[in-house]
Structure formats: C-alpha cells, structure tokens
Design a protein around this nucleic acid. Structure first.
Lengths: 122, 122
DNA sequence: TTTTATCTACGAAATATTTCGTATAAAAAA
DNA sequence: TTTTTTATACGAAATATTTCGTAGATAAAA
C-alpha cells in the first residue's frame, strides 16, 4: 500500500506523536503549511477506509492511529524509489545519499558495522 | 524541477538510450506497460514545454533529448525522499537500503571507500 | 435553557496527472 | 498520381489527489 504525499505527512505525525485526534494532527500540519481542518479530516477518513489508520470512536472526537509501521512503509517506499529513480541500484542510491547529506561520525560508524555484518554472511 | 512518475520513466529511457524519437521512446515503454503512442507524445511535448527535454525539429520526426542529467535529478528526488519518508535522516535511509537490497562485494567496497573519504575530511 | 463551539460525514469543487481521439500535414508506398 | 502510413498538435476525457463548504449532531458555555 503506497501512501500519497499528503497521507505520508499524516502518518509521520502519528508515528511521532502516537494516537491523535484530527484536531491534533491538523494543528501539527498547520505548523508547516496552510491546511484547513476539514481537509485533514477528510484525508484521515479516507486513510481509515483504506486501512492505513485505525480509529477509536468512543469519544466524540475519534482517536486515530497508524495501522502501518514506519519501518515497513519506509521499505515499501524505498523499494519503489530505488527502482524508479536509481534503476534498481541500491548501492548507487547509498553513494548519492552519503555524498550529499552530512552524517555524524557515529552514524558513519553504524553504517560501517552494517557493512561488516553483510560481508560476513556467506 | 520535480518530474512526475511518468516523466521519470521517459527520462530513464532517454538517459539510457540517448536522444530518441517519440516512437522509439514509446516502443521502449510499451515493453513494460500498455501505453498509446499519443500518450507518450503528449507527455514529451509537455516535458519539452517545461524544459525537461530539448528537441530537434529538423526531421519530420522530432528528436528529443533529456535536458536534465540523471545525477542532478537523482539528487533532487533523493533530497525530497529523505525528507518525506525518512524525516531527513540520510543515514537511516542508507541502513534500510543496505539491509533490504543485495549489493555485490565490489559495491560494498566502494561504499566503504566513500566512508573513509568522508571521515578523513576535517 | 439558549447560544456557541466543535465534531463527523459527505458531496463536490479545485488541481494535478495521465490518457487518448481526431484533425491536419507530410512522406512513403502502391 | 492516388492511397496508405506516420508524424505533430491539441482539446478534452479519464483518473488521482487535495481542498473545502455545508448539514446535522452533540457537548460546552453563557
């Protein structure tokens, strides 16, 4: 299931904040861009229909939560992205990412460890 | 300039094959999916208007070429992707990419060299 | 109790993207 | 020369995504 850009923004909020009402999500989104309350509501209703979100309807304000994990969503999106933008070459993507963005020494170390681990496997 | 998904598919063809006519691009795309000739034509005309492609109108069949490099496009897309899907953490993306996809030992070596290079810089 | 604020549902407008049909011109084949 | 094939241009339909207004219900405030 591939979330759209707007859907991903909402998922990000829920992953970071945990379960939220529409109002809470909307306030969070409104910090970065101009977006009306009913717009966010509608999107979250659609995401609920699609199964991307669960919701508790006990209180008057429903409480929504992500129904897909951040990790699995990242994997799904990454797979597609590697294919469409890097012709399937994950290592090329990695080189690009390391080249353009600054990572801390600790992060670089972690990556190095991962490389060791991968190479050790027969 | 962020190309759409369909536009990216066309750019991929032109990056790989070099300058092409609409027909050539369409035939290439048709190998993977069902797409009509005029659809490809229209898309390429739009891309030309946007400045994503150049074209030679000398012959009856115009010859189109990519007007953005693969590298710079990858950088643009990657930047956005890191932000939207990985909250800006390039290293997290790298870990994911290395974890999920298989890279050859040679590629891993290349990555390792790049890490060395980055860490050496003051 | 009356008014005001806040919530959901939902249709539909607005926008972005993709797809294709048709008109017209030019080249190639018959 | 006449017919057929193959181009471009372009409007507009089809689809996907985002945005918002309005109606109706419920809770909170006055």
């Amino acid at each position: 299931m591939k979330p759209t850009d707007s859907e991903l923004e909402i998922l990000q909020v829920l992953w970071q904040e945990g379960p939220c009402t529409v109002r809470q999500v909307n306030e969070r989104l409104a910090q970065n861009k101009d977006v009306g309350y009913t717009t966010t509501l509608k999107l979250m209703q659609i995401m609920h229909e699609k199964g991307l979100l669960t919701r508790l309807e006990e209180a008057r304000s429903h409480v929504y939560a992500a129904n897909v994990s951040e990790e699995e969503t990242q994997s799904t999106l990454l797979e597609r992205f590697v294919d469409t933008a890097f012709r399937g070459s994950a290592s090329k993507l990695v080189m690009h990412a390391l080249g353009n963005h600054k990572a801390t020494p600790a992060e670089l170390d972690e990556i190095r460890k991962l490389l060791d681990q991968i190479e050790k496997q027969p």
